[in-house]
Simulated assay, not measured.
Amino acid sequence: MRESSCSMTEQDSPRRQRAQAKRDPTEWHGHRIVTETDLGAVFEEDDAARRRRSSMRRIRHGVVLVLLIGLVAAAVYVALGIARGDISIGASEPSPEPTSTCPAGPFDYQDPSAITVNVFNSTTIDGLATTAADQLRGRAFAVRDIGNKQVGPTGMTAIIISGEGGRANAFTLQRTIPDSLYVADEREDRTVDVVVGTSYAGIIPPEGIDITPAALRCAGEGQPTPTPAPTAP
Protein backbone atom coordinates (compact mmCIF):
# COMPACT_ATOMS: atom_id res chain seq x y z
CA MET A 1 0.00 0.00 0.00
CA ARG A 2 2.85 2.38 0.76
CA GLU A 3 4.35 1.86 -2.62
CA SER A 4 1.02 2.52 -4.28
CA SER A 5 0.57 5.70 -2.29
CA CYS A 6 4.02 6.99 -3.25
CA SER A 7 3.41 6.19 -6.89
CA MET A 8 0.19 8.12 -6.88
CA THR A 9 1.92 11.07 -5.23
CA GLU A 10 4.58 11.13 -7.92
CA GLN A 11 1.92 10.94 -10.64
CA ASP A 12 -0.11 13.69 -9.05
CA SER A 13 2.91 16.05 -8.74
CA PRO A 14 2.96 17.19 -12.40
CA ARG A 15 -0.72 17.74 -12.26
CA ARG A 16 -0.33 19.93 -9.20
CA GLN A 17 2.40 21.88 -10.91
CA ARG A 18 0.24 22.46 -13.95
CA ALA A 19 -2.62 23.45 -11.75
CA GLN A 20 -0.45 25.90 -9.87
CA ALA A 21 0.89 27.26 -13.18
CA LYS A 22 -2.66 27.86 -14.28
CA ARG A 23 -3.34 29.71 -11.04
CA ASP A 24 -0.08 31.84 -11.35
CA PRO A 25 -0.66 34.44 -14.09
CA THR A 26 3.05 35.32 -14.31
CA GLU A 27 4.02 31.97 -15.71
CA TRP A 28 3.14 30.30 -18.95
CA HIS A 29 4.31 26.78 -19.61
CA GLY A 30 7.28 27.32 -17.36
CA HIS A 31 8.24 30.73 -18.74
CA ARG A 32 8.16 33.96 -16.78
CA ILE A 33 5.70 36.52 -18.09
CA VAL A 34 6.75 40.23 -17.86
CA THR A 35 3.98 42.00 -16.05
CA GLU A 36 3.00 45.64 -15.78
CA THR A 37 4.54 45.69 -12.34
CA ASP A 38 7.85 44.49 -13.76
CA LEU A 39 7.75 47.13 -16.50
CA GLY A 40 6.90 49.82 -13.95
CA ALA A 41 9.91 48.87 -11.85
CA VAL A 42 12.18 49.06 -14.90
CA PHE A 43 10.81 52.42 -16.04
CA GLU A 44 10.93 53.71 -12.46
CA GLU A 45 14.68 53.02 -12.42
CA ASP A 46 15.05 54.80 -15.81
CA ASP A 47 13.15 57.83 -14.50
CA ALA A 48 15.38 58.01 -11.41
CA ALA A 49 18.54 57.90 -13.57
CA ARG A 50 17.07 60.54 -15.86
CA ARG A 51 16.31 62.77 -12.88
CA ARG A 52 19.85 62.31 -11.58
CA ARG A 53 21.30 63.23 -14.97
CA SER A 54 19.01 66.24 -15.20
CA SER A 55 20.04 67.33 -11.72
CA MET A 56 23.75 67.04 -12.61
CA ARG A 57 23.20 69.11 -15.76
CA ARG A 58 21.50 71.83 -13.74
CA ILE A 59 24.37 71.86 -11.26
CA ARG A 60 26.95 72.11 -14.06
CA HIS A 61 25.00 74.88 -15.74
CA GLY A 62 24.78 76.74 -12.43
CA VAL A 63 28.55 76.47 -11.86
CA VAL A 64 29.29 77.70 -15.40
CA LEU A 65 26.85 80.60 -14.96
CA VAL A 66 28.47 81.63 -11.66
CA LEU A 67 31.93 81.53 -13.27
CA LEU A 68 30.76 83.63 -16.21
CA ILE A 69 29.20 86.20 -13.88
CA GLY A 70 32.46 86.33 -11.90
CA LEU A 71 34.54 86.88 -15.06
CA VAL A 72 32.22 89.63 -16.27
CA ALA A 73 32.34 91.34 -12.87
CA ALA A 74 36.16 91.12 -12.81
CA ALA A 75 36.39 92.57 -16.33
CA VAL A 76 34.11 95.47 -15.38
CA TYR A 77 36.16 96.13 -12.22
CA VAL A 78 39.46 96.14 -14.14
CA ALA A 79 38.01 98.40 -16.85
CA LEU A 80 36.75 100.90 -14.27
CA GLY A 81 40.10 100.77 -12.44
CA ILE A 82 42.01 101.50 -15.64
CA ALA A 83 39.63 104.33 -16.51
CA ARG A 84 40.09 105.91 -13.05
CA GLY A 85 43.83 105.35 -13.11
CA ASP A 86 43.76 103.02 -10.08
CA ILE A 87 45.05 100.13 -12.17
CA SER A 88 47.87 100.42 -14.67
CA ILE A 89 49.03 97.83 -17.19
CA GLY A 90 52.77 97.40 -17.65
CA ALA A 91 52.59 97.48 -21.42
CA SER A 92 50.82 100.86 -21.40
CA GLU A 93 53.03 102.62 -18.86
CA PRO A 94 54.78 105.65 -20.31
CA SER A 95 58.53 105.60 -20.55
CA PRO A 96 60.17 107.42 -17.65
CA GLU A 97 61.34 110.93 -18.40
CA PRO A 98 65.11 111.24 -18.48
CA THR A 99 66.46 112.82 -15.33
CA SER A 100 68.43 116.01 -15.69
CA THR A 101 72.18 115.77 -15.15
CA CYS A 102 72.47 119.50 -14.52
CA PRO A 103 73.69 120.10 -10.95
CA ALA A 104 70.92 121.69 -8.91
CA GLY A 105 73.07 123.39 -6.31
CA PRO A 106 72.64 125.96 -4.96
CA PHE A 107 76.25 127.09 -5.35
CA ASP A 108 77.89 130.08 -3.71
CA TYR A 109 79.71 132.80 -5.61
CA GLN A 110 83.47 132.33 -5.11
CA ASP A 111 86.44 134.70 -4.93
CA PRO A 112 87.62 134.99 -8.58
CA SER A 113 91.27 135.15 -7.51
CA ALA A 114 90.99 131.59 -6.17
CA ILE A 115 89.71 130.18 -9.50
CA THR A 116 92.08 128.81 -12.17
CA VAL A 117 90.62 129.17 -15.68
CA ASN A 118 91.60 127.79 -19.10
CA VAL A 119 90.19 129.81 -22.01
CA PHE A 120 89.59 128.28 -25.46
CA ASN A 121 88.36 129.68 -28.78
CA SER A 122 85.89 127.47 -30.69
CA THR A 123 85.49 129.92 -33.60
CA THR A 124 87.49 131.13 -36.57
CA ILE A 125 87.69 134.59 -35.04
CA ASP A 126 91.37 135.26 -34.38
CA GLY A 127 92.29 136.36 -30.87
CA LEU A 128 88.85 135.72 -29.32
CA ALA A 129 90.26 133.48 -26.58
CA THR A 130 92.97 136.04 -25.79
CA THR A 131 90.39 138.80 -25.54
CA ALA A 132 88.24 136.73 -23.17
CA ALA A 133 91.29 135.76 -21.11
CA ASP A 134 92.34 139.39 -20.70
CA GLN A 135 88.85 140.33 -19.57
CA LEU A 136 88.83 137.52 -16.98
CA ARG A 137 92.29 138.51 -15.75
CA GLY A 138 90.99 142.03 -15.29
CA ARG A 139 88.34 140.53 -12.99
CA ALA A 140 91.10 138.77 -10.95
CA PHE A 141 90.56 135.23 -12.37
CA ALA A 142 93.79 133.21 -12.62
CA VAL A 143 94.03 132.37 -16.33
CA ARG A 144 96.38 129.48 -17.00
CA ASP A 145 96.02 128.14 -20.57
CA ILE A 146 94.77 129.83 -23.75
CA GLY A 147 94.10 127.89 -26.94
CA ASN A 148 91.59 126.54 -29.46
CA LYS A 149 88.99 123.82 -28.95
CA GLN A 150 86.17 122.66 -31.19
CA VAL A 151 82.69 122.20 -29.77
CA GLY A 152 79.33 121.25 -31.15
CA PRO A 153 76.97 122.87 -31.83
CA THR A 154 78.52 126.18 -32.82
CA GLY A 155 76.94 129.61 -32.44
CA MET A 156 76.81 129.62 -28.63
CA THR A 157 78.13 132.35 -26.35
CA ALA A 158 80.31 130.19 -24.09
CA ILE A 159 80.34 126.88 -22.28
CA ILE A 160 81.72 126.45 -18.78
CA ILE A 161 83.29 123.03 -18.09
CA SER A 162 84.32 121.57 -14.74
CA GLY A 163 84.42 118.43 -12.66
CA GLU A 164 82.33 117.86 -9.55
CA GLY A 165 84.81 119.68 -7.31
CA GLY A 166 84.78 122.81 -9.48
CA ARG A 167 81.05 123.39 -9.73
CA ALA A 168 81.02 126.43 -7.43
CA ASN A 169 83.89 127.91 -9.47
CA ALA A 170 81.95 127.20 -12.66
CA PHE A 171 78.91 128.94 -11.14
CA THR A 172 81.06 132.03 -10.45
CA LEU A 173 82.24 132.11 -14.08
CA GLN A 174 78.71 131.55 -15.36
CA ARG A 175 77.57 134.62 -13.40
CA THR A 176 80.43 136.55 -15.01
CA ILE A 177 79.79 135.46 -18.64
CA PRO A 178 76.16 136.02 -19.75
CA ASP A 179 74.19 133.28 -21.54
CA SER A 180 76.89 130.68 -20.86
CA LEU A 181 75.96 127.02 -20.40
CA TYR A 182 77.47 124.47 -18.01
CA VAL A 183 78.84 121.08 -19.04
CA ALA A 184 80.31 118.57 -16.57
CA ASP A 185 83.32 116.36 -17.18
CA GLU A 186 85.32 113.84 -15.15
CA ARG A 187 88.26 115.99 -14.01
CA GLU A 188 89.15 115.71 -10.36
CA ASP A 189 90.60 119.16 -9.70
CA ARG A 190 88.74 122.47 -9.33
CA THR A 191 89.90 124.10 -12.56
CA VAL A 192 87.36 125.44 -15.03
CA ASP A 193 87.46 125.62 -18.83
CA VAL A 194 85.77 128.46 -20.68
CA VAL A 195 85.10 127.80 -24.38
CA VAL A 196 83.89 130.94 -26.14
CA GLY A 197 81.73 130.87 -29.26
CA THR A 198 80.68 133.23 -32.02
CA SER A 199 78.06 134.93 -29.80
CA TYR A 200 80.57 135.87 -27.13
CA ALA A 201 80.42 139.63 -26.50
CA GLY A 202 82.32 140.10 -23.26
CA ILE A 203 81.74 139.70 -19.53
CA ILE A 204 79.20 141.36 -17.26
CA PRO A 205 80.32 144.62 -15.52
CA PRO A 206 81.17 144.13 -11.84
CA GLU A 207 78.12 146.06 -10.66
CA GLY A 208 75.81 143.85 -12.74
CA ILE A 209 76.90 140.48 -11.35
CA ASP A 210 74.32 138.61 -9.26
CA ILE A 211 76.13 136.76 -6.46
CA THR A 212 72.97 135.16 -5.01
CA PRO A 213 73.48 131.38 -4.52
CA ALA A 214 71.71 129.42 -7.25
CA ALA A 215 71.95 126.40 -9.54
CA LEU A 216 74.10 126.07 -12.62
CA ARG A 217 72.38 126.68 -15.95
CA CYS A 218 72.65 123.89 -18.49
CA ALA A 219 71.13 123.38 -21.94
CA GLY A 220 67.34 123.57 -21.83
CA GLU A 221 65.01 120.67 -22.61
CA GLY A 222 65.12 119.80 -26.31
CA GLN A 223 68.27 121.84 -26.88
CA PRO A 224 71.54 120.12 -27.78
CA THR A 225 74.15 120.16 -25.04
CA PRO A 226 77.42 121.74 -26.20
CA THR A 227 80.10 119.05 -26.22
CA PRO A 228 83.81 119.82 -26.44
CA ALA A 229 85.68 117.78 -29.01
CA PRO A 230 88.80 115.95 -27.79
CA THR A 231 91.87 118.12 -27.95
CA ALA A 232 94.38 116.81 -30.49
CA PRO A 233 97.70 115.76 -28.90
Rank of each mutant, 00 (worst) to 15 (best):
S95M: 12
A142N: 09
P233Y: 02
G155S: 06
A75E: 05
R190H: 03
D12Q: 08
G62M: 10
D126K: 01
P153W: 11
G105M: 09
A133Y: 10
G202K: 09
T198S: 15
R137Y: 06
Q110P: 02
S7M: 13
D189G: 04
T99S: 13
A170F: 01
G166M: 05
A229R: 07
I59G: 00
T225C: 04
T225V: 12
W28Q: 13
R139A: 14
Q135E: 15
S162H: 01
V195Y: 03
Q150V: 06
I89K: 12
E44V: 00
T176E: 11
D86C: 07
L68V: 13
V117T: 08
E207G: 03
S7K: 14
Y200W: 15
R60E: 11
F171G: 01
E186P: 00
D111M: 04
I203S: 03
N169Q: 10
S180A: 14
R53G: 03
V117H: 03
I82V: 15
H29M: 12
V195N: 02
R23A: 12
S88K: 15
T176Q: 04
P94D: 06
R58G: 08
G70E: 10
I146T: 07
R18C: 11
D86I: 10
F141E: 01
V76C: 08
L136Y: 11
H29P: 00
V143I: 07
M156N: 08
D47L: 08
P14V: 09
M8H: 12
T35M: 04
P224A: 12
F43H: 09
G40Q: 14
M56Q: 07
A158H: 10
R190T: 15
N169P: 02
R187K: 10
Y200T: 10
A158W: 08
G127P: 05
S13D: 07
L136W: 14
E27S: 09
I160F: 02
A214I: 00
R52V: 09
T123Y: 01
N118M: 01
A91H: 07
G202I: 09
E3T: 14
S54T: 12
L128F: 06
E186Y: 05
T9Q: 13
G30W: 11
S5H: 12
T37M: 12
N148C: 02
R50C: 03
K149S: 04
V119Y: 08
G155E: 09
H31Q: 14
P206C: 00
A83I: 01
A142F: 02
P94A: 11
P14T: 05
Q135P: 03
P224H: 06
M8C: 11
A114F: 08
Q223G: 00
A19P: 00
E27T: 12
T130C: 00
G85V: 00
T35I: 03
S5C: 09
G81E: 06
P112M: 10
T116Y: 02
T154E: 11
A168F: 05
Q150F: 02
G138H: 04
G85C: 05
P226E: 00
S13A: 14
P178R: 04
A132V: 12
F141S: 02
G220D: 14
S4V: 15
P228H: 03
D179M: 05
I115T: 07
V72Y: 07
M56H: 02
R2A: 10
